[in-house]
């Protein structure tokens, strides 16, 4: 019975080696495909070099789906450019702009944007559109704020009753607005009930829905996720909940021309028309109101 077989460890090693070879060659193939695709992608009629325009925007804008309409429309209007969207928090978007790693910014934190331009990192800030924030919460509404339109008073009620509130806590445009609302209410939020999660809008909404908490959300992301959430709009309509978006061309943009083209296009009637119609089919109301001059 005592026969010596090839060591099972050796077999396993051989198998592992084979597997990793397959994986590596698979990855290499993917890489090769990408490289091969690039030059042939837009198939220009005349010989025009297609250049990449990097736009840094926010996760909430990306999550709303607006870029799925804006990107192809812009690329149709300007076949010379290909638009790459990097969706991060407003803080990181501005930081990417400062480093010159993005060509153009579409963000929504006006004071930070104006500071960015004042420091010389951006050419100028132009109004593009706005949407609004809403305070959402569980249907049961333990803080008794449903149907009101005074955001600061609502936050005072939430803090007063120590009802759980989820904060983005990520220096995003939404978080910036939230902080200004707290200071409007004269409250320094802290305690077991105040959950600062340092994550995106989708995560904050999901968490608030799961644990029955309140949170501040931009209407677009809330509407887009509404069907999957146990949350209703409690407070809306306060002027303090107004959320303006600006476009800024980065001074040191690698593709300054492309960046300028995008900024000019999005404030043009063509760009504004796309913004105005976006979301109407799905939600029965536009998610963003164009307000370029």
């Amino acid at each position: 019975m005592l026969e010596l077989r090839p060591s099972p460890a050796l077999k396993r090693q051989a198998l592992a080696l084979l597997l990793s070879l397959v994986l590596v060659s698979g990855l290499a193939a993917c890489g090769a495909e990408e490289v091969a695709e690039e030059p042939s992608a837009p198939e220009p009629v005349e010989e025009v070099e297609v250049t990449n325009v990097i736009i840094a925007s926010t996760t909430s804008t990306e999550d709303s789906g607006l870029f799925t309409e804006l990107v192809p429309a812009f690329e149709d209007a300007y076949p010379r450019y290909r638009l790459s969207v990097v969706a991060v928090g407003t803080g990181q978007a501005l930081e990417i702009g400062r480093a010159g790693d993005a060509d153009v910014l579409l963000v929504h934190a006006r004071s930070q944007e104006e500071e960015f331009v004042a420091e010389g990192y951006g050419v100028e800030r132009r109004d593009v559109m706005y949407n609004d924030f809403v305070i959402v919460g569980p249907e049961a509404d333990p803080a008794g704020i449903a149907g009101t339109s005074d955001a600061a008073a609502a936050l005072t009620a939430i803090a007063g009753g120590a009802h759980v509130f989820v904060s983005r806590g990520d220096d995003s445009g939404t978080h910036t607005t939230e902080r200004s609302l707290w200071s409007l209410a004269g409250i320094e939020p802290a305690g077991e009930w105040y959950l600062s999660i340092g994550q995106g809008m989708g995560e904050a909404l999901t968490m608030a829905s799961e644990i029955g908490a309140y949170t501040l959300a931009d209407r677009g992301t809330y509407l887009a996720m509404r069907d999957r959430l146990d949350l209703t709009v409690a407070v809306e309509g306060d002027e303090a909940l107004f959320n303006p978006y600006g476009v800024i061309v980065v001074t040191d943009a690698g593709n300054l021309e492309g960046a300028q083209a995008f900024a000019d296009w999005i404030v043009s009637p063509a760009g504004q028309a796309i913004i105005e119609s976006f979301g109407v089919d799905t939600y029965g109301e536009p998610l963003f109101i164009p307000d370029a001059e």
Binding site: G89, G91, A93, L195, S196, I197, G198
Partner: peptide
């Protein structure tokens, strides 16, 4: 969920600070 003071760990804090810039 990266909740401050409750479930935040080093790696999630790193992601968060990078996102903030």
């Amino acid at each position: 969920g990266n909740i401050e003071g409750q479930t935040r760990v080093l790696t999630t804090a790193i992601v968060q600070e990078s996102r903030k810039g």
